[in-house]
Each structure stands twice: as C-alpha cells, then as structure tokens.
Amino acid sequence: MMLQSIAFYAFAGVLVGSAVLVIAARNPVHSVLFLVLAFISAAGLFVLLGAEFLAMILVIVYVGAVAVLFLFVVMMLDINFVRLRQRSMRVLSVGAIVGLVLMVELVLVIGTLIAAPDAGAPTAPAVAGVTNTVALGDLLYTRYIYLFQASGLVLLVGMIGAIVLTHRKRVGVRKQSIAAQVGRKRSEAVELKKVTPGSGV
C-alpha cells in the first residue's frame, strides 16, 4: 500500500510539474516534450488505478502518434518567439476566462462529490474475473455501439476533409509506375538490327 502511495505522489508530482512547464517553457519544442512527459505520467496514474488498457492506449495514441506530429510541426515551423510572446499576452484574457470556467466546473464537481457522495452518476461495479480490457470491449461494442460507430465516422470525415483541403494535383510531375517498369518485355525495350559492314544504322 505504501509503495503504491509513493508511486502515486511521484507520478502526480511529475504530471503537475510537467503540465506547468508545458506553458512555462520558452522553447516550444521543450513544451511538447514536457507534454509527452505529462501524458506518460498520466498513463502511470491510470496503471495505479488498475486501468492498464487505458494507460497503454494513452501512450500509443497520444504519445506515439499525436505528440510526434505536434513535435514534427513545431520543429519544422520557423517560429518567431518574440512575436509569439506578444500575441500570447494579447490572448491572455481569453485564456484566463477559459481557465476560470474550468476551475469553477472542477470545484462544482468535487464539491458535489464531497457534499453528497451518493449523488453522482453511479460507477459500474468492477466485474469479477474479467480483465478491464474485456469489460471495456463488452460495454463499448454492445451498449455504446452506435456512439462508437458515430465517433469513427466523425474521424473519417475529418480525415477526408483534411485530404480534400490539402491535396492538389501537381502537373508536370513524372511519376514512377513500378508495374509498367516490371511489366516491360524484351521485345519492347531492345531492337535488333542487321547492320551491314561499311554502312551506318
């Protein structure tokens, strides 16, 4: 039990610290790297809760794919740091409002939980003898199948939209057609000529 609480405080501390550094770091690449650290610490907290499937999916999807793309973009962009700072000062008020709303919501949620512990939405009891991966699958593919499919459709539409918006056909580009190259026969490529001595081809 004690080891578990030590682990919890370590993960939680790193999570909060790196989350603060995400916005405090001067260099945007450092920000993204701290974001990755925050994701991994969150995954550690999930493991401590016994939700190992969620933890692994968090690492695979967010750290392994999404954050890599973030990092890609941030590294490739030539960002003017001074201009960025000035702009971030301008949107500070908007950020403050968003933060305030979030904080009020959190206080409300936690306040209700403390004031009336039984009032919240009932959490499903843990099913004995079934790993949480199986339990999650059972729920996701039966009870929430339509929502699951709908979220898949939303992603698909997003993907197609991104392709439609960014893809343009370039003219004058010579493309390699591997099938055409491999399918070429000797008769099409080589021509034998009978050359009589003394005369040209």
Partner: peptide, 21 residues
Amino acid sequence: LNVGILYLFAVSSLGVYGIIM
C-alpha cells in the same frame, strides 16, 4: 501484464522520441 502486447507496442512507439530529439 494483462496488456503485455500493448505495452510492447507502446514502448516501441516511444522509440521515435530518442531519434527525433
């Protein structure tokens, strides 16, 4: 681990960070 294969997959997907960093 009950999710051993996912753990392996997660760790191997983290490998890209060492290189990109």
